[in-house]
């Protein structure tokens, strides 16, 4: 009984996280300015990491954890590099 509860709530959570990712992608594509796009990208990778963690809970495998950790690391480095570019480069919008 509680197992089906868990399955359903995991599915619901995954749908919510996917919607959250869609919102972030919208901000990423729409802008209007470059800093909005970077913000969208930042939110996108956090949401993707959380989605991977829920996949991990669903399948009961800790392999997803490693992927989530790598996404967190690379996402941070990527965002900082982009922001550094915004601070220095001439951005064409």
């Amino acid at each position: 009984m509680s197992a089906t509860w868990l399955t359903w709530s995991l599915t619901l959570a995954q749908i919510m996280l996917a919607l959250a990712m869609a919102c972030a992608v919208f901000r990423l594509l729409r802008g209007p300015r470059a800093q909005d796009r970077v913000l969208g990208l930042d939110a996108l990778y956090v949401n993707a990491m959380l989605l991977l963690l829920t996949f991990g809970i669903r399948s009961g495998s800790t392999l997803y954890f490693e992927a989530a950790l790598v996404i967190a690391l690379l996402g941070f480095v990527g965002t900082v590099a982009l922001v550094k570019f915004l601070l220095r480069g001439e951005v064409i919008e």
Partner: peptide, 8 residues
């Protein structure tokens, strides 16, 4: 998380 992204 969804609320936060809706805020975006």
């Amino acid at each position: 998380t969804l609320t936060g992204s809706l805020g975006l």
